[in-house]
Computed example of a mutant assay.
Amino acid sequence: MKKRKIELAVISDVHLGTYGCHADELIAYLNSIQPKKLILNGDIIDIWQFSKRYFPSSHLKVLKKIIGMASKGTEVLYVTGNQDEMLRKFSDTSMGNLKIVDKLVLNLDGKKAWIFHGDVFDVSIQNAKWLAKLGGYGYDLLILMNSFFNWCLSKMGRERYSLSKRIKNGVKSALKYINDFEKTAADLAIENGYDYVICGHIHQPKKERYENKNGNCVYLNSGDWVENLTALEYSFKRWKIYHYNHDRLSPFFVDEDLKEMDMNDLIASITDVNLEPETEDIIEEHTKLIEVEEKDLDNQGLAQN
């Protein structure tokens, strides 16, 4: 399978070491891309619920794959989260192409992206960590029950169903928490002059522009690999939410944002990079040949409208 070359990929909330983790699907996704940078935006390993009794080989393969990508030239930036917070004692440590950080600011084509996990906004974690951990165990149990439920549905030929999504969408306090989380992150990003703010933590993939009296920014959330199986991808100066269940057979360029671009904008976004002089000469030469061929076709009345 030919790998898709992209500028940046962001994944979060993989929760390796739990029953809900979709490690095989994540490996398939990572095998399909060749990013210049891979951002691991927190909760990759669920240290809170880590158990020697459950850490299957597929979960180890994910770690091996990530290390392998780093060894082959991909810059891997591990942004720590709440459930892998033990890694925060190693913040700013570098090992080859792998670096551990608590937060990150990147320059993307002249725009600033502020990247962090998002647990800093979670009051339950800040004030009562034991309660947050208890909730994590309950969530893991719910996911385990949901897996059995979906296995039964698949045997009956019916579509998968997410119990946790249903509960979140049906509880007003959960919806308010998510909305407050997103607004707080966006407001802080605008206040500090960031064009993008990129989070994880709440398992809700999203891409939305926020505005207030001080300006605007784009809020992005990479979702998770427990329920949604999503990632963020940046290429051609555009952000895309990648959905494994829908996009795994689709190339990046079918993104709706790119469909809406005219050809000149698309060419400009692709070629807006520093090329070697030899490469520029080759492109110019081929462009002239194409123009000559088109003129010949016009003279013969064969050019398409």
Rank of each mutant, 00 (worst) to 15 (best):
147 S>K: 15
147 S>C: 12
147 S>D: 15
148 F>W: 15
148 F>L: 12
148 F>V: 15
149 F>S: 07
149 F>Y: 15
150 N>A: 01
150 N>D: 03
151 W>Q: 09
151 W>R: 13
151 W>L: 15
151 W>D: 15
152 C>L: 13
153 L>C: 05
153 L>K: 08
154 S>P: 06
154 S>E: 10
154 S>R: 15
154 S>W: 05
154 S>G: 06
155 K>G: 05
155 K>S: 04
155 K>M: 01
155 K>I: 10
156 M>G: 12
156 M>P: 00
156 M>E: 03
157 G>M: 03
157 G>H: 06
157 G>F: 02
158 R>A: 11
158 R>I: 11
160 R>A: 14
160 R>P: 04
160 R>V: 06
160 R>H: 15
161 Y>Q: 05
162 S>I: 09
162 S>F: 09
163 L>S: 12
164 S>E: 14
164 S>C: 10
164 S>R: 13
165 K>Q: 14
166 R>M: 07
166 R>P: 05
167 I>N: 01
167 I>E: 03
169 N>Y: 15
169 N>A: 10
169 N>T: 07
169 N>P: 03
170 G>A: 07
170 G>R: 08
170 G>W: 04
170 G>Y: 00
170 G>S: 00
171 V>E: 01
171 V>R: 11
172 K>Q: 10
172 K>H: 13
172 K>Y: 03
173 S>H: 02
173 S>C: 01
173 S>L: 06
173 S>Q: 13
174 A>G: 00
174 A>W: 04
174 A>P: 02
174 A>Q: 14
175 L>D: 06
175 L>Q: 14
176 K>Y: 09
176 K>L: 14
176 K>C: 10
176 K>R: 15
177 Y>T: 01
177 Y>R: 01
177 Y>M: 02
177 Y>E: 01
178 I>P: 02
178 I>W: 00
179 N>Y: 05
179 N>M: 07
179 N>F: 14
179 N>W: 02
180 D>Q: 09
180 D>V: 11
180 D>W: 11
180 D>S: 12
181 F>Y: 13
181 F>H: 05
181 F>I: 02
181 F>M: 00
181 F>V: 04
182 E>M: 12
182 E>R: 03
182 E>W: 07
182 E>P: 05
183 K>S: 10
183 K>W: 05
183 K>V: 07
183 K>Q: 11
184 T>E: 13
185 A>W: 02
185 A>G: 03
186 A>D: 04
186 A>L: 08
186 A>P: 12
187 D>W: 08
187 D>S: 07
188 L>R: 13
188 L>W: 05
188 L>M: 09
189 A>M: 07
189 A>H: 09
190 I>M: 14
190 I>K: 06
190 I>G: 05
190 I>D: 04
190 I>W: 09
191 E>H: 11
192 N>S: 08
192 N>K: 09
192 N>P: 13
192 N>I: 02
192 N>Y: 09
192 N>G: 06
192 N>H: 06
